[in-house]
């Protein structure tokens, strides 16, 4: 499973120097190697490789336009890739759909759609229900239980457009929980949510962790990275660094990923935050 399409010896040496795997780890919940994605010939992701640590919460951080959402979508095989291999516990993504749950960005759908919160959560069960069949009473009960987990049981019959942004985010989270997957990929679940929703999301993350699930979260609030997550993946067009927060969430890696976009004082403060936790 050697990646032989990496162009140029220099890149190969760079990869080796970084000590990064360029072979898919069959035991990893989600392994990505040599992932390159371009929109209209403009590369967004370049040779990204990452192996998700099992049973851990990993934050994916990087500046705007670093390709974080693209990384998730390409990992899920939702968008075409120029190169790269993906495996879920050693299986190709197409054969592992039941093992992976996805929480898309809230802005990716039309919330005016005629559906209730319960309808949307039930969608997380559509794969189990199977083609042509309608959701039954048991499915609705399970969906209701998932809404309860995110504190939204009182809104189950509310049309989704009548919910606040944070409540909509929790509905998306409940839908992913309904899937009962082994790996969870979440795209900016914390973006623009209220305090109650932030707490609900953190509770859900802890619950998933306690159940031994593997969770990857695209996250933009650097200050809460050491607070909520055990691992971190720095992304900027390619994978810059990854590892446990205590070792990897350093001023040096932040500087490498964000460049001049973070002030030195900010960097120092973030580095301190990481150390205090470690």
């Amino acid at each position: 499973m050697k990646i032989d399409h990496v162009s140029g010896g220099a890149t190969k040496i760079a990869l080796a120097e970084a000590g990064r795997r360029d072979v898919l780890d069959p035991g990893s919940p989600l392994a990505v190697a040599g992932l390159t994605v371009a929109y209209d010939r403009k590369p967004v992701l370049w040779n990204a490789s990452f192996s998700a640590p099992e049973g851990e919460l990993t934050a994916i951080v990087g500046p705007n336009g670093a390709g974080k959402s693209t990384f998730l979508k390409a990992s899920l095989s939702l968008i075409p890739r120029l190169s790269g291999e993906i495996s879920v516990y050693g299986k190709p993504m197409e054969a592992a759909r039941g093992d992976v749950a996805y929480v898309p960005q809230r802005s990716s759908v039309d919330w005016d759609f005629p559906a209730t919160a319960l309808d949307v959560v039930t969608m997380g069960l559509y794969r189990q229900i199977g083609w042509f069949r309608w959701p039954g009473r048991k499915d609705r009960e399970r969906a209701r239980a998932m809404l309860e987990l995110v504190g939204m049981e009182a809104f189950s019959d509310r049309q989704i457009g009548q919910l606040s942004g944070g409540q909509q985010q929790r509905v998306f989270l409940a839908r992913a929980l309904a899937q009962d997957a082994r790996v969870y990929l979440m795209d900016e679940p914390f973006a623009g949510v209220d305090a109650a929703t932030e707490r609900a999301i953190v509770d859900v993350l802890r619950k998933l962790l306690a159940e031994g699930k593997t969770v990857l979260v695209v996250h933009h609030d650097l200050e809460t990275v050491p607070l909520y997550f055990s691992h971190v993946l720095f992304l900027n067009a390619g994978t810059v660094a990854s590892g446990p927060v205590t070792e990897t969430f350093t001023a040096e890696n932040l500087q490498k990923t964000y460049g001049g976009r973070l002030a030195a004082t900010q960097l120092a403060a973030l580095g301190e935050a990481a150390k205090v936790r470690g």
């Binding site: 197409e94 759909r97 749950a101 898309p104 990716s108 759908v109 759609f113 969608m123 069949r133 839908r175």
Partner: peptide, 22 residues
């Protein structure tokens, strides 16, 4: 009637539908 659930899903959230293998 047969594809009601699938039609609803892909009309609302096509990317999510693809992650379910639908």
């Amino acid at each position: 009637a047969l594809l009601y659930k699938e039609l609803k899903l892909v009309s609302f959230d096509p990317l999510f539908a693809d992650t379910l293998g639908i």
